[in-house]
């Protein structure tokens, strides 16, 4: 089953750093959010292959919004 990597806080998606098919490892920065005028790195909380990118750059996200799925 695929897991998701979620936004840690409310903000907008500044950059997606990976694409579908990329291999990711625990701690890799997969996206950067912009919130409170800071660039917030979003790290992988597990290892696997990116299945789907679930938000577009520039999208508004809330705490817990899935950013991508991987397995």
């Amino acid at each position: 089953m695929a897991s998701t990597i979620d936004a840690v806080m409310a903000g907008t998606v500044f950059k997606i750093e990976v694409k579908v098919g990329d291999t990711i490892d625990f701690g890799d920065v997969v996206a950067i959010l912009e919130s409170m005028k800071m660039e917030i790195p979003i790290e992988a909380d597990g290892a696997g292959v990116v299945q789907e990118i679930l938000v577009a750059e520039g999208a508004t996200v809330d705490t817990g919004t899935p950013i991508l799925s991987y397995k």
Binding site: V8, M9, S35, M38, I40
Partner: peptide, 9 residues
């Protein structure tokens, strides 16, 4: 700042 921008929660 490495985590949640260092913002206070």
């Amino acid at each position: 700042s490495r985590h949640k921008g260092g913002v206070l929660f």
